[in-house]
């Protein structure tokens, strides 16, 4: 049993590790709240990868060329792979993939609210790559330096693949913009729908983000939501110009004094409704995951039973 004195020593060692920006590893002592925060954040990220397979998977069967079909299927497959790495990272914290999947299905754990928006045209595949993966990269790049070792290392690999996906998405939109008038209109319409939800991906504004301060002190998070959102807007504006699309915000303008773009007010009411479960696709996404999990139960049971028989033999 750990005494109060030992605990204080462990905690000061932990704090020193964080202060030196060294990694915390699974066998290291860590405060229980740090562990819980990590499980919550990494699981939410893993769930986002798995739920994120659905909106793009929606277009695999209708991809308009065989090359695009291969690219899309491979991308969605990568998302399953990201989910696997991240669930593995949470397993080092003492929680199983099955437990986490059950928490996703029960609604006890969240995933990125962006995936509660529908994909309504093939252009959405490109827009998700450009804006959604782009926003995810802005969020995730700093996490490569996060304090928990397995998470940081998983993020390095994931960021590389996300950046590749983002380029593929942007390249699809570029190609469509060189196509017919209908295709250009499709791209613009898709950007119109996904721009604001993409900005919401950075989470609530800093003054309404209760977990940020502690997560930053622990080195789990390294930038605030608003800082990352601003970075994303500043990066995206020239890309939109190069693409030839308009971002649907009349207030979007360069601010010489701030050396950054001003932009309009996000509809936080919609954000909170989507986070709260009332977005256009929340029920559908969870039902899809739940059905896949339930439909696969007999297979997982068979695999376990077979493995037990093999061991016994």
């Amino acid at each position: 049993m750990t005494s109060a004195v030992d605990e204080a020593g462990l905690e000061s060692h932990f704090e020193a590790t964080i202060a030196h920006k060294d990694r915390i590893e699974p066998r290291d002592w860590m405060p229980e709240k740090y562990r819980r925060t990590l499980v919550r954040q990494i699981a939410q990220h893993a769930h986002s990868e798995i739920i994120g397979m659905q909106p793009e998977g929606n277009w695999i069967s209708r991809a308009p060329s065989l090359r695009r079909k291969a690219i899309l299927l491979a991308k969605v497959q990568d998302e399953a792979g990201h989910g696997l790495y991240l669930y593995s990272a949470t397993e080092t914290l003492g929680v199983t993939r099955t437990e986490l999947t059950e928490r996703l299905i029960s609604g006890a754990q969240k995933y990125s609210s962006i995936f509660n928006y529908p994909t309504l045209s093939y252009a959405d595949v490109g827009t998700i790559g450009w804006l959604v993966d782009g926003a995810a990269i802005c969020n995730q790049v700093p996490l490569c330096r996060t304090s928990f070792g397995p998470y940081g290392r998983a993020m390095i690999r994931i960021c590389k693949e996300e950046s590749f996906h983002q380029r593929q998405g942007y390249e699809l939109l570029m190609t469509m913009m060189r196509g017919t008038d209908e295709q250009r209109a499709m791209v613009q319409e898709s950007v119109d729908r996904f721009w604001w939800p993409s900005l919401m991906m950075f989470g609530p504004p800093d003054d309404a983000s209760p977990n940020t301060a502690q997560s930053m002190a622990w080195g789990i998070k390294t930038h605030t939501n608003d800082e990352l959102r601003q970075r994303f807007v500043d990066m995206t504006v020239p890309q939109a110009e190069a693409l030839g699309v308009t971002l649907p915000d009349p207030d979007l303008a360069w601010n010489e004094r701030r050396q950054a773009h001003d932009f309009g007010e996000i509809d936080w009411d919609e954000f909170w409704r989507v986070v709260g479960g009332d977005g256009p696709c929340n029920a559908q996404r969870v039902a899809h995951r739940s059905k896949a999990w339930d439909d696969g139960a007999w297979v997982r049971e068979a695999a376990s039973a077979f493995a037990r028989k093999q061991e016994a033999a």
Partner: peptide, 22 residues
Amino acid sequence: ISEWCSRAPDLEEDIALANIAL
């Protein structure tokens, strides 16, 4: 086979079926 994407019994099988479809 690609209709299985996001519907397989577990992530490993989802990835394997996508490989075969690809």
